[in-house]
Design a protein around this nucleic acid. Structure first.
Length: 863
RNA sequence: GCCGGAGUGGCGAAACUGGUAGACGCGCCAGACUCAAAAUCUGGUGGUGGCAACACCGUGUCGGUUCGAGUCCGACCUCCGGCACCA
């Protein structure tokens, strides 16, 4: 064994050992409990960033720990290889997206290997390869057959200059990011998958997902947004107009409706607009503007009277109908009844356009309510007022009575609405999985039969970034209709990349299967622990759950949910640097290219670009992302300190579910710890192989060491189980401090106790820093494979104490502490405490009114 | 705007079920070793007052519950994530 720790040597050697022994290749085994540990697959952007390192280190620590606990662990890895950045790179660097992607994968795979992650590379998958995407094409044709996929028109961002569809991310302040042209909305036919048919199951099953964080479940619940309400008809006082149907969750407020509002696409609006140029101008002015919900919510709430009246179905009152830009076309019926007294948005609108506000709900308490000033939206402890026959009722009673009334009179019905919308999967892009459809002028859209699949995406193309090159490839585009044989054209849209990431976890279980999945899937599924960024809490994780149910209903898997446990790691944040430029917009500068200059006479540090020495702008803490160019490359850190240090530091810096503000100055401390660990093993390399069965007769110092080691082990174990790896590392550091301070002298029993401590320390640390532990383990002459050595067990006898420190509080303030033997009865503790001289001083002449005893911990005297 | 989180020393953080706030580490200060420096090792380190024992204050802000609150409840402030075509 060498006297000093050389990480690169150690790591190369150990990685070669794992490679040679195929240490992480697994197959289905019935003699062991399986553990499927899944980390979210990366987009191959070109470089591993700290978010990946954090994600995969968490997964690797968990996997290695579970393996030591005796499980058959599978930990796969792959590439989410389709997507927009490859197209952008293609335009910038004139490289075909495929070539760029495959190069990136090669580089990143090398980086992952250098980190020492225990992936089973024989299961690697790449989503842009036909052997992967062919199965999702096949699956999609099944969905079309089952009526779960359908085509309808939907709105996209249209860049009139570049003649292309833009992603929301590519629209900045309403303008195209490259052309700068004002973005238009355009309606085009697109494919949708009926996630709304599964809304109830997706919602209800959240309750049984005990291993999921509550925050994620709450977000999904709110996203699905199930609401029970009443759909009710308001007649229009013009003969020719169909009645307005509105959905409301507050039937108890119907008497307070003082106007109606309809969306700009509502038939009533269109009918009025055709005769009224003001309305039609208003509608077209609303058509520009937001596609995304953020912009939609942020925009000014505007409206215009349609000069039409509706008749309140309960009171018979005539109320005006308005068209308003905040009424959603896609939610409910595209029309609402507005009750400004009891709804915040309606209230705002009513004030703005001076529409009447009428209170129809009162509090049961003596709370003061003035709805002219503020809306009052409570549902509990309320009573209806000014509501004719329906006055004097609670929310629930009013709901029931009014709903029943509406149903009996044929003017309405109880209904359930969802905020969730069907999943639009069409993308007007080249670098994605081709949607397996042929458009025939006779048969319409025809799914491609199984024996004609896959539809290959041509990889050798010149991509100019203006339009999808698929439209230009005549050989690819023109085909005969599979049904009638007439010449037809292929669908040129590709799938949303969320489709690939919705089922990759299942395919990992069945590498090389000549079908989408096979029996092996049911051995491994569901995933036991899924680890990924919190930013995926809703979209990806909902589609992922949804797709699993689709696969179940086609008979490919038998479980209901894809994963039993979920860990959402916090974001890794870094500062980002940029400069705004009139011509090219905002350019982002890599942190490595930024220096900090101190101005004379101040301590303020100003970021400057190394290239030109000029000042750049700085963001606050923000996510590391490709677009902001602020990813920290772990490569340099590995070169400097080794992968073990990087792994140790990322685990130590903060708990997995919290965000981590990256600061590489602090890494050195973790490295120092590994050097000390190396040194202590080097000092005791000739360590004893004797095992003591019975430690009960050893000296006090040895007993103290063993108590420390086993108490800390207990905490480390708890940290592992809770995935609080930062406290695991802290525990390892403490344990080493204890071992380091322990002087063995010539004592055999002390030597044995130290041996035990070092053995435990190396084992518990090995999931986090596996390379150094592997080498130290061998240096100690262990024959057993460290990867499969059992996780150490706490010796309960070592934990026994003969004295404990009892804290004494007086009126809740800590005053002193007393040593007592553990396990005393309350009465005994009381006596000891009250007879203590320090305590008596504090009490003085006062009478003790109350004594609170927390056994073996604390006593509080109330005087 | 809506939904979900977070806020504790100079910094990253810990604190089990409401029971000694600040474990562990970074940084800093002092000392040892050295011709010197680096590295390493030892000790100290929340704030204020005090020679000291010690006292008071202290977990984003304000208020509440409790013998006792970082932890529970209410209101607010700031920051982060998501908002359906970034992944």
């Amino acid at each position: 064994m060498q006297a000093s720790y050389y990480p690169s040597e150690v790591e190369e050697q150990v990685q070669a050992y794992w490679e040679k022994h195929l240490s992480f290749q697994v197959t289905e085994r019935l003699d062991k409990e399986k553990f499927y540990c899944l980390s979210m697959l990366p987009y191959p952007s070109g470089h591993l960033h700290m978010g990946h390192v954090r994600n995969y280190t968490i997964g690797d620590v968990m996997s290695r720990y579970e393996r030591m606990r005796g499980r058959n662990v599978m930990q796969p890895m792959g590439w989410d290889a389709f997507g927009l950045p490859a197209e952008n790179a293609a335009i910038q660097r004139e490289v075909p997206p495929a070539k760029w992607t495959y190069q990136n994968i090669e580089h990143m795979k090398h980086q992952l290997k250098r980190m020492g992650f225990g992936f089973d590379w024989s299961r690697e998958l790449t989503t842009c390869k036909p052997e992967y995407y062919r199965w999702e094409q096949w699956f999609f044709t099944k969905l079309v057959e089952k009526g779960l996929a359908y085509r309808r028109n939907a709105i996209v961002n249209w860049d009139p200059v570049d003649q292309t569809v833009l992603a929301n991310e590519q629209v900045i302040d309403g303008k195209g990011w490259r052309s700068g042209a004002i973005v238009e909305k355009r309606e085009i036919p697109q494919w949708f998958i009926r996630i709304t048919s599964y809304a109830d199951e997706l919602l209800d099953e959240l309750d049984s997902l005990e291993g999921w964080p509550d925050s994620v479940k709450t977000m999904q619940r709110n996203w699905i947004g199930r609401s029970e309400g009443l759909e009710i008809e308001f007649k229009i006082d013009k003969e020719c107009q169909a009645p307005l149907r509105v959905f409301t969750t507050r039937p108890d407020t119907i008497y307070g409706a003082t106007f109606m509002a309809v969306s700009i696409d509502h038939p009533l609006t269109q009918s009025v607009a055709s005769q009224n140029p003001d309305v039609s101008d208003f509608v077209s002015s609303c058509r520009r503007g937001a596609v995304s919900e953020v912009e939609f919510e942020a925009m000014e709430k505007r409206g215009m009277s349609l000069d039409v009246n509706a008749i309140n179905p309960l009171s018979g009152e005539k109320i005006p109908v308005w068209v308003a830009n905040f009424v959603l076309t896609g939610y409910g019926t595209g029309a609402i009844m507005a009750v400004p007294a009891h709804d915040t948005r309606d209230h705002e609108f009513a004030l703005r356009y001076r529409l009447p506000i009428r209170q129809v709900i009162s509090p049961l308490t003596d709370e003061e309510v003035d709805v002219q000033i503020q809306p009052w939206v409570a549902k509990e402890n309320t009573v209806t007022v000014n509501s004719g026959d329906f006055s004097g009722l609670s929310y629930h009673m009013a709901f029931e009575k009014i709903a029943t009334f509406a149903e009996q009179h044929g003017i309405g019905e109880r209904k359930i609405n969802y905020r969730l919308r069907d999943w639009g999967v069409s993308r007007q892009r080249y670098w994605g999985c081709p949607i397996p459809i042929i458009h025939c002028s006779v048969c319409g859209p025809v799914p491609i039969p199984e024996d004609h699949l896959p539809v290959l995406l041509p990889e050798d193309v010149t991509f100019m970034g203006v339009q999808s090159p698929l439209r230009e490839l005549d050989d690819w585009l023109n085909v005969n209709c599979p049904k009638c044989g007439k010449s037809s054209v292929r669908e040129t849209d590709t799938f949303d990349t969320f489709v690939e990431s919705s089922w990759y976890y299942a395919r990992y279980c069945t590498p090389n299967a000549p079908s989408m999945l096979d029996d092996r899937a049911d051995y491994w599924l569901p995933v036991d622990h899924y680890i990924g960024g919190i930013e995926h809490a809703v979209l990806h994780l909902l589609y992922f759950r949804f797709w699993h149910k689709l696969m179940r209903d086609i008979g490919l898997v038998s479980s209901d949910e894809p994963t039993t446990k979920l860990l959402c790691q916090g974001m890794v944040l870094a500062k980002a640097y940029y400069r705004d430029n009139d011509e090219s917009g905002r350019i982002w500068i890599r942190p490595e290219e930024v220096d900090f200059h101190t101005h004379e006479g101040t301590t303020d540090k100003v970021p400057v670009w190394k290239v030109d020495g000029q000042v750049v702008d700085e963001t606050g803490w923000t996510t590391m992302s490709k677009s902001k160019n602020n990813g920290v490359d772990p490569h340099d850190l590995i070169d400097r300190y080794g992968a073990d240090t990087v792994r140790l530091f990322t685990m130590f810096a903060s708990p997995p579910d919290q965000s981590l503000e990256w600061n590489d100055d602090a890494v050195a401390g973790s490295h120092r710890f590994l050097r000390r660990l190396w040194a202590i093993v080097y000092r005791h390399e000739d360590i004893s192989t004797v095992k003591l069965e019975n430690f009960s007769t050893v000296d006090q110092t040895t007993r103290t060491l063993r108590r420390d080691v086993h108490t800390i082990l207990q905490r480390i174990h708890r940290g592992m189980e809770r995935q609080q790896y930062n406290t695991v590392v802290a525990g390892c550091m403490e344990m080493m401090n204890s071992l380091d301070r322990f002087d063995i002298g010539d004592s055999m029993e002390r030597k044995v106790a130290l041996t035990e401590g070092i053995d435990i320390l190396i084992r518990v640390l090995s999931p986090i820093t596996p390379h150094i532990c592997h080498v130290l383990w061998q240096a100690l002459g262990k024959n057993e494979e460290l990867l499969d050595s059992p996780w150490p067990v706490v010796d309960p006898l070592a934990l026994i104490r003969d004295k404990i420190q009892l804290v004494v509080q007086i009126n809740g303030k800590r005053r002193t502490q007393i040593d007592v033997t553990p396990g005393l009865e309350d009465q005994e503790i009381r006596a000891v405490v009250l007879s203590d001289p320090t305590v008596s001083q504090y009490i003085g002449d006062a009478t003790v009114k109350k004594v609170v005893v927390v056994p073996d911990r604390l006593v509080n005297l109330v005087i």
